[in-house]
Design a protein around this nucleic acid. Sequence first.
RNA 1: GGCCUUAUCGUCUAACGGUUAGGACAUCGGCUUUUCAAGCCGGUAAUCUGGGUUCAAUUCCCAGUAGGGUCACCA
Length: 478
Amino acid sequence: MNNEQKIVTRFAPSPTGFLHIGGIRTALYAWAYAKKHNGTFILRIEDTDKAREVEGSIEHIIESLKWIGIDWNEGPDIGGPNAPYKQSERLESYIKYANILIEKGYAYADPYTEEEVEIYRQKAIEEKRPFLYRDHRKEITPVWDGTQSLRFKVKDIKSYEWNDLVRGKLSAGQEALDDFILIKSDGYPTYNFAHIIDDFEMGVTHVMRGDEFISSTPKFLSVYEALGIKRPEYATLPPIMGTDGKKKLGKRDGAKDFLEYKKEGYLPNAMMNFLAFIGWNPGIEKEILTPEEFIELFEISQIQISGGGYNEDKLDWINKEHIKLLKESELEKYIFEWLPKELQNKKIIPLITERISKFGDIKNMVEGGELDFFYKEPACQNDKLIYKNTDKDTIISNLTKTLEIIEKTNESDFTTQNIKIFLMEFADSLENRGQVLHPVRYALSGLEKSPDPFIIADILGKNETIKRLNKAISSLSS
RNA sequence: GGCCUUAUCGUCUAACGGUUAGGACAUCGGCUUUUCAAGCCGGUAAUCUGGGUUCAAUUCCCAGUAGGGUCACCA
């Protein structure tokens, strides 16, 4: 039954800075597809543009992928049977295939300087027509000595039609075919050439890529034909649009470093879940998926065609749902990472998990200052201690009674549950519970909107609770 | 401008010729309630326009419109 080919996918970023969600999503799909089919997932670094290279990018990229939980079978950090995994270290391969193309008459040294070509290009732009280098071919070209750029020679100018796993039939006009550069004058290959050679040598079977590559596919196809090698399957992913829903998301228009999400306190599994659904949908109603469930459900045929924006509200919701999925120990670890030392108390965990969606992410929640009162004594205003139209003396009396209840409670019985039972018993004896619960809550938190008084008292502890109640009583009495 | 490509609630989407066009997020209302949040229940809300094809179009075809991509010694 298992005579199908081994699936090999890759993610091939260039080290020109950070990765944003678009890049991570491409990696995610390629990874999930390989995982699902027990295939191989390769991380390859496309560092052929030394001018744009940003130091530290590779480490940053690796950190981003690892954080969300994407791992690879072969890569620059771990090696593998097809090493090396940086294009800058694979130059001999490109030269080898470049020479084959020269021999076959499919490549020639560029007789023009960059400036000369640029003049032709500008003219084409002014005349609002596509620029085609092949319109300016020279009869005689120099022998390639590695100092000029090497161009591919299109012999058969035709329209191409090919099948895409996501989009189905795709096509391109003859204008998409041109004598493009294979090897730059600095000796490095262009993406257009290098990725073909690498994918071939590494045995890549499926390429997940953005729609910006549709137009250049005829160029790739013509190289495959010239070399007489088989191309991988293409799966074109839908673009991720910016929050405005219009322009495609890119670094220039504010796409953020993927690691920012880590800094804001999103869970990696939530991010994976969120990203998985931008451009893919399993067609079932379940929307909260663990990585294992995602891999199991993932199908290329269910990748979306049209582009979609992303919705940070939905990310917050997904994150909240994933928080619910955490085991107690994981939850504690996750939350404590974000809390100042003074707040690292097990009792605060339920309070945080139930209120996190108000803030979206945990970083916002902590920095929002809503938890500050736990370790900073609040400043209470007398009039705000009063519940509705209750008279002041009743409030004082209720606070005093509460104080007695608290003082009577043993240290060992001082739990959220017990405090609630004791206080509610008293509150229920009044005409309105708010006449005690409101002033107590405000006295303890100093906030008009806060968690309930029972859990606050529990977290504060008996002594601090007594202290704050006393303060409120004396403030009202004076 | 040429070429390529896309189009369902505000947003992300389901539907693969026949459905009261389904779900989720957001929003609105109700319940609960000491406030906020959470939770539960319910509501509003969509097939871009115009032509075909068909007994029947969200679905297939064509055009228009609007978006996106591409036309680098960037990937």
